[in-house]
Write a protein that binds this DNA or RNA. Structure first.
Lengths: 232, 232
DNA sequence: GTCAACGCGATTGTCGACAATTCTGATGCG
DNA sequence: CGCATCAGAATTGTCGACAATCGCGTTGAC
């Protein structure tokens, strides 16, 4: 799971990042939640310095918001941030599938199919953690196969942001992106149909975004604090 | 100069980042150059911890390459990295100008024109540092005016990368992007001509990329080391 | 004479303690 | 009774010293 790998320093930092990310997407850590360094250090059996590294990395990825002298919170992206994130993903991922259409080899297709198979298995088992992981990693896999290191790096940042956004704004019907839409994308890539592939990706992302309720008044947990303490 | 502003912590780190960046684009620090922490600390009158923060930030931006237990070097992006970077910029900046075409107010146009005026002044004075800074900041200004925080962040990373690439691969004719092409872009935005604006931006970036010699065998300074020490 | 193994110097990585800042609750004044 | 002021506690930020690691020169054996 090369999910968090800003710098493959020591795995401790990465593990902390991943654990926090997981807690966020599973909604056990809610946006606005305070992240005390010492607590985290104790929880993960690490030193505070390590925790700090993890937090700065997570801030880079947009998962936590880091205000000087006041510590770290889980970030609270607004509606605009959400739209920006999806808009950027659209831009990037469209390009990626086009690239894959041209240069994907049989082994790439096989890798994608294999991934989808694992997604299906996870759905079968109702393994929610695996579902979340795999559905995100599918997009990262596309980036890696497209042989686009830079875009891959950018996309990682964006998927992390959108996963937070999804956790934050998703409606009750907890639908992650299912394997079927992924399948459609892969099929188009295999058929070398650039238009269809781009369209499938666009549709997939639009579907993801539409599953959120971005237009309503903010329902977040921390609305109270934000509402009552405007100066902040 | 909100050039380096990953986190507005203390300005010391930012100043270090900026100084190193400047040295790179001015070609006084060459790709592959070793960056010893202690030396940097002494040079900038900072502690090693601060230097370390700066280096990790610069690694995120792709300016330095940070290998565990072996320290930091100025990064040496390959030809593929260069193409990726320009490709990504194209993707992002096209979207940005389209957005600006729709939502740019008169004050935005004025800000852009003002910026170009400063570019012209810098050219007049042959102030190479100002020229480099301003020509990069023009693109960042577009991102900021387009009110796209996320894309702005991404673009910052990309401009840093491309500035390194430019310094690395530019031909003798040391041409940075001149004010005239910027002027064309602004004119198109002002006229609300989306197609023309996108085209102007595409042309501008293509021009920038074409001014490099990416197709030849690597001429870099460190070719020797790379050639003789393949295992590394 | 060549190669391998070893140890030393140099450099990075890590940690714990201290300093600075902010938040909380209480106190006193208006 | 409300509000500003001010300690005390809690939390983050910073630093210097120590430990781990790596590169390199030396030494020794074959």
């Amino acid at each position: 799971m090369p999910w968090f790998s800003t710098t493959p320093k020591h795995d401790v930092v990465r593990r902390i990042c991943e654990r926090i990310w997981l807690a966020v997407v599973q909604r056990s850590l809610r946006p606005g939640a305070r992240l005390k360094e010492e607590d985290l250090a104790e929880i993960f059996g690490a030193t505070r310095a390590r925790v700090r590294q993890a937090l700065t990395a997570l801030e880079q990825d947009g998962l936590v918001s880091l205000t000087p002298n006041r510590g770290a919170c889980i970030a609270e992206p607004g509606v605009e941030d959400a739209q920006d994130a999806f808009s950027a993903r659209l831009c990037i991922e469209e390009r990626l599938v086009l690239r894959l259409c041209r240069q994907a080899g049989p082994e790439d297709i096989a890798a994608l199919r294999d991934h989808i198979a694992r997604e299906r298995a996870a759905h079968q088992d109702a393994d929610s953690e695996a579902i979340i992981r795999l559905s995100g990693e599918f997009h990262m896999l596309i980036a890696r196969l497209a042989d686009a290191e830079l875009l891959s790096k950018i996309l990682r940042m964006l998927t992390i942001r959108t996963s937070l956004i999804t956790a934050m704004y998703q409606t009750q019907a907890t639908q992650t992106c299912g394997p079927d839409e992924h399948e459609r994308i892969v099929a188009a890539i295999e058929a070398r149909d650039e238009a269809a592939a781009a369209e499938a990706m666009r549709h997939h992302l639009a579907h993801l975004e539409s599953a959120l309720r971005l237009d309503e008044a903010r329902p977040p947990v921390t609305a109270l604090r934000e509402a009552l303490l405007p100066p902040r």
